[in-house]
Design a protein around this nucleic acid. Structure first.
Lengths: 218, 218
DNA sequence: AAATATTTTTAGATATATCTAAATAATGTA
DNA sequence: TACATTATTTAGATATATCTAAAAATATTT
């Protein structure tokens, strides 16, 4: 059994390991959790003793098989709760995270089984992220660039291919961000530009070049 | 802000103060929380410093006004979650407590507001206990003795007036306990005896004398 | 490769929530 | 009232999770 804090560390380390090649470093973990490197060292020793991480001094950590399983169960709980908050309790996307961070540590197999059932076995959370099943299995949603979808398509922005400052500033300015809900209102055949609606509110025009760099998950 | 452990102590002490005249003793708290008297002394000092209890050495504690408010909010959360678990997630009565004990400490005003709304503002939890509102206000359900209700009535056993060992042993034997869901199947006019169903399963016969001592909440 | 900078670990504190064992206060009884 | 019993508190440990400051290891630069 992992404690609240141990679960938090493991989940974060698992996420980092997915975006990192090689070992996850102490500082990366500390940054991610807003804590100090010394605290991380203490904790990764403990998690390593519990067999969920493999750790070599000064060489960072890798998540073990059992660690992955445990991390995916926490992620499963987190994403099921987020789905519940948005679908049933009418939370906005920006309101769910903090609460789901707490709810994900509630310990009850029956609760999660029934919650899953109650939500009709969702495969993706409100951000488009996949919800692992009881065995930790999941399938990511296929992603497509905005210029490859038809008018009337809705989806969630999951990735931005151009990460230059200029581009990100532009996206920020027009109100596009990771996780935003997008609807293609119109596609101009002439130049491939798009009129899109963001979060069922604001509508903006983007050029084909821009649309090639924004990837959504339907 | 109270910690998880502090909230648990306060809630328990509040419950004890409701069944006790005068101060709540250290040992009563320790028994109730399955902990040691020394731990209780430590904690009540802390809670007393926070102003939710008033405490005099060797004289036990009283819950202050602010303490009552805080305790009632924890109880509110507990009972709303119990209602959610039974009404929405199809938990049985005996399965809810442990999970609600965890859920009651989740910290989010919006969550509780929305949960309350989602459950259509319930006034009583699945055990028949009143759910305090945001201001801590609540109204207990009126209670009646079994011999005063008509056939077909359903209710929850909330109180047993005869607390002799013999009587309690008898109740235990026939499967009656506090919180049990009761349905009056038949009332024999001749002697006032009753055929009742317990938890939608077992049916038993009880005499009028016994029925006078069992109080339900409809 | 040596010097410097960065990263990571260790040592030693602090805060919370517990415990056991011993001391002290309150209560019950002869 | 004095003694015995019970209840409560204190003192001192333990475990978890955190921190700062210093030491050690690794990485980078000249």
């Amino acid at each position: 059994m992992l404690s609240f804090a141990e679960e938090n560390y493991l989940k974060t380390i698992y996420h980092l390991s997915e975006e990192t090649e090689g070992a996850v470093t102490t500082n990366a973990i500390a940054d991610s959790l807003n804590t100090k490197a010394a605290s991380v060292t203490d904790m990764i020793k403990k998690l390593s003793n519990k067999g969920v991480l493999s750790y070599q001094k000064y060489r960072g950590v890798h998540v073990s098989e059992s660690g992955k399983k445990a991390a995916l169960q926490v992620i499963r709980k987190h994403r099921l709760w987020e789905t519940f908050l948005v679908d049933k309790l009418k939370f906005n996307w920006d309101e769910v995270h903090e609460v789901a961070e707490q709810l994900e540590h509630i310990n009850s197999t029956l609760l999660i089984k029934r919650l899953d059932e109650f939500l009709a076995y969702p495969k993706y959370d409100p951000h488009g992220d996949p919800i692992p099943d009881e065995n930790g299995e999941y399938k990511s949603k296929p992603q497509v660039a905005l210029n490859h979808v038809k008018a009337d398509t809705t989806g969630i922005i999951v990735s931005v291919k151009d990460t230059s400052n200029a581009f990100l500033k532009y996206l920020d300015k027009i109100g596009i961000y990771l996780g935003a809900k997008i609807k293609i209102l119109e596609k101009v055949e002439f130049d491939g530009s798009l009129e899109i609606q963001i979060d069922s509110k604001k509508t903006v025009f983007i050029s084909k070049e821009v649309s090639e760099n924004i990837w959504i998950s339907e």
